[in-house]
Design a binder for these strands. Structure first.
Length: 364
DNA sequence: AAGCCGGGGCC
DNA sequence: GGCCCAGGCTT
């Protein structure tokens, strides 16, 4: 257990942090509203995604779906299209499902209890506390990557914060530091400090309002905390896909809802096997995924892309449809579309680059 | 507890 | 190419 905090330390911590936040906080759209719906959307978008990357998506999303009712009325494909490019697409799926449940079960009001919020898909231990504290100002501490980093440094906790026991300890610590009645601003301040000053690498200790009481700074190497976990090198795969033409239309396939890139459209293809040529891979994968025969005409472009657990080199080829009726064997749907209509569908980033070059060329 | 799930920015 | 990130879900 963490040593009890003296009331003097606690007051210094709170006062220094809140004063700094008042002065230095960023002007963010979800800080200009008290609408629990918008705060919920922002918190889901901010899961594993940094503020600068979220901003354009947040504006776009709120414009498309201004209320939980609007989101509930929308189709999943519409929601995915707005989410396209932000990654972790299960978040969009869960947000959509939860919106429908909120309208159905709670008359469109975002729940304000721990129990009700926790039961909604996509709302885990962090997000439930973030919504309750930030939107409803209830006295719940939050524990995200920023808070973990700040607390591990200030209190020099050199145990692995990914373990359940240490997380529990950190959450209790955050709860003790939280000034009653100020959870909304305090939690945002703690996370803002982690994002702007107490950064993972090269923390800006000279600008930190907690520098005088930070044990990691006193020890000389604050960047060494929290302890890092060794990472494995990512495997590298070659993926071959076909841009399959028939009568000036191309064939796209819909990925299964669960799993990687669930619910997104793609050019048919798959992983290159040992000793296989790129062209043979396209023919085989298209046959396995859709049950049709194609002829490979010429290479189109190569895209490199990194996912969480592997890297890919994406090889795309112009192909000509030969025979067979498409069937959803390795996908859940397929469609012949005019190139001009491709932007209506949500694609993963790698496919998007292919699509953009395709439209770029045909537009000239 | 560990693996899966995107993408961008940084060095 | 490795590393970091305003986590949640599944097994």
């Amino acid at each position: 257990m963490v040593m009890p905090i003296s009331s003097e330390l606690k007051q210094n911590f709170q006062q220094n942090l809140l004063t700094w936040f008042q002065d230095q906080k960023r002007d963010l759209p979800w800080r200009r509203t008290q609408d629990p719906y918008q705060i919920w959307v922002s918190e889901v978008m901010l899961q594993q995604t940094q503020v600068d990357q979220v901003l354009p998506y947040f504006y776009r999303f709120i414009e498309a779906f201004p209320t939980v009712e609007a989101l509930a009325r929308a189709s999943l494909s519409e929601v995915l299209k707005v989410w396209e490019g932000m990654g972790y697409y299960a978040r969009a799926r869960n947000l959509h499902t939860a919106a429908r449940r909120i309208v159905e079960d709670y008359g469109g009001k975002i729940p304000d209890t721990f129990k009700e919020l926790s039961q909604l898909p996509g709302i885990g231990p962090y997000t439930v506390r973030a919504i309750l504290s930030i939107a409803y100002n209830q006295d719940y501490p939050v524990l995200d990557g920023n808070v973990i980093r700040v607390l591990c440094r200030v209190f020099h906790i050199d145990k692995d914060p990914r373990s359940g026991g240490v997380k529990k300890e950190l959450l209790q610590l955050a709860g003790e530091l939280l000034p009653p009645g100020k959870a909304s601003i305090f939690n945002q301040a703690l996370m803002e400090l982690g994002a702007l000053v107490c950064r993972p690498q090269r923390p800006l200790c000279l600008l930190c309002p907690l520098r005088s009481l930070c044990q990691a700074r006193a020890s000389g190497d604050p960047a060494a905390l929290p302890v890092k976990t060794p990472k494995k090198t990512l495997p590298h795969y070659h993926i071959c896909v076909g841009i399959i033409w028939k009568d000036h239309q191309v064939l796209i396939a819909l990925r299964p809802l669960e799993g990687l890139l669930g619910g997104l459209w793609e050019f048919p293809g798959g992983k290159l096997e040992e000793g296989e040529s790129l062209e043979a891979c396209v023919v085989r994968e298209v046959r396995e995924e859709l049950g049709i025969e194609v002829k490979v005409d010429k290479p189109f472009m190569v895209v490199k892309h990194a996912y969480t657990h592997f890297r890919i080199t994406l090889h795309s080829f112009h192909c000509t449809y030969l025979s067979g009726d498409p069937r959803p064997l390795g996908c859940i749907d397929w469609k012949w579309v005019s190139p001009d209509d491709l932007p209506q569908y949500a694609f993963p980033k790698g496919n998007k680059k292919i699509l953009e070059k395709l439209l770029d060329k045909s537009g000239q």
